[in-house]
């Protein structure tokens, strides 16, 4: 029985964004930590928003939910906090996908603000109302700001990658 190496490679490349999301949630990858005083960004938000918007067959909602639960365990947040936040990001992305005919970087970027606000508002509301964890609002703000600023960069990278895997699939 011959192993179809090409098919395995295609599948791996196709699910690389999902693998990346799982790895970031489960590992010590400090995307939410402060390398240079105030600089931090939420890479999970960017991955979820872009791939749910552009190609939802790559990032299943079930995996987004599981990644949220894993992130909660690793960060010691009440279970379901990140899951809800990620699912609402997915909801905004799915809504934008349904509502727009042709999306561009600017429409994606603009609607991403709404997604960030909703995602962080859910986290903030759940943590402030139902847990005793204190937050630094200014750090949350910087985190959201840099997530927003960095979106076009990752958008461009993911766009190249998406075209690459689409070309390979239909080769």
């Amino acid at each position: 029985m011959a192993i179809n190496v090409k098919a395995i490679k295609e599948t791996f490349l196709r699910f690389l964004p999902l693998v990346l999301l799982i790895y970031i949630c489960i590992s010590e990858f400090h995307t939410q930590f402060f390398y240079w005083k105030i600089f931090s960004f939420n890479f999970q938000f960017i991955i979820i928003y872009y791939w749910i918007l552009r190609d939802p067959s790559i990032l299943g909602y079930g995996f987004v939910f599981l990644c949220g639960i894993t992130n909660d365990v690793v960060l010691s947040l009440p279970l379901g906090t990140s899951a809800l936040s990620y699912l609402f990001i997915s909801l905004v992305a799915a809504y934008v996908r349904n509502a727009t005919v042709r999306s561009t970087l600017f429409t994606d970027w603009f609607t991403f603000i709404i997604a960030i606000i909703i995602g962080n508002f859910i986290t903030y509301s759940l943590l402030s109302k139902f847990s005793e964890i204190q937050m630094q609002y200014i750090l949350m703000f910087y985190n959201s700001l840099f997530t927003f600023i960095l979106y076009p960069l990752f958008w461009a990278l993911f766009e190249i990658y998406r075209r690459l895997i689409n070309l390979r699939t239909y080769d």
């Binding site: 939802p56 639960i69 379901g80 799915a94």
Partner: peptide
């Protein structure tokens, strides 16, 4: 449509998963 539609290769709808998250929380 965004909440209830499962779409291609999606096993669960967003509505179901949001509900599950709320129950877990």
């Amino acid at each position: 449509s965004a909440l209830l539609q499962r779409g291609a290769k999606q096993k669960f709808s967003l509505f179901v998963l949001i509900l599950v998250s709320v129950i877990i929380f």
